[in-house]
């Protein structure tokens, strides 16, 4: 009779359900459906959807591409970090390399312009965590992930690695400027 004994009615699937249960199941089901459609709705009408455009790429090939691109658009050297600051044209590609334990280069983007941001790890898993907005994307080695981004606020941002990547993980942080 209680939950630790066999049910008295052999056919438990014919056991009546109480009104409180029926009502709650209906409400909970509707709520689950709302949450389901919310995701689809956001793909149609929302502005923050993570792209899934991905390519397999070898570290050498990716690095060569990123360096060629950087040499074209480097505007200065960042004094505090010594990293090149690269300002790609609006609508163009922006490459980021994550590796033990730094991000390269420092990007400089323009507000309300759109870029194709390429994320790639040369070694282990890393995290792309844009602060203070708190946008977080996984960076998986060997996979080039192209995310289309449109910064909506100017200022100095930081890119924090938030996937554990070894003993220097907590020193892995980069800068990103939006003009």
């Amino acid at each position: 009779m209680t939950a630790i004994l066999p049910p008295a009615e052999r056919l438990w699937w014919k056991h009546p359900l109480d009104r409180v249960e029926g009502t709650w199941i209906a409400i909970a089901f509707v709520w689950c459906m709302v949450m389901f459609f919310m995701m689809i709705y956001w793909h149609i009408n929302g502005r923050q959807n993570l792209s899934t455009e991905t390519y397999k790429a070898s570290p050498e090939a990716y690095q060569a591409r990123a360096e060629a691109w950087a040499s074209q658009y480097t505007v200065r050297v960042d004094e505090t970090t010594g990293n090149p600051v690269v300002a790609p044209p609006a609508g163009g590609d922006a490459y980021l390399i994550a590796r033990l334990w730094s991000f390269w280069p420092t990007l400089e983007l323009e507000k309300d312009k759109t870029y194709r941001l390429h994320l790639y790890s040369m070694d282990y898993n890393h995290g792309f965590s844009l602060q203070p907005s708190n946008i977080n994307i996984q960076v998986v080695p060997g996979y080039e992930h192209v995310v289309t981004v449109t910064p909506n606020q100017s200022g100095t941002y930081s890119v924090v690695c938030n996937e554990f990547c070894g003993i220097g993980h907590h020193t892995m942080v980069g800068t990103l400027y939006v003009k």
Binding site: P132, N134, N162, T171
Partner: peptide, 21 residues
Amino acid sequence: GTLGVPRRHWDLGFGGMPGAY
């Protein structure tokens, strides 16, 4: 976490890296 603090992370000060967040 809503302020962005990472998990599995030893140091909010980033070990004193220049230009850190």
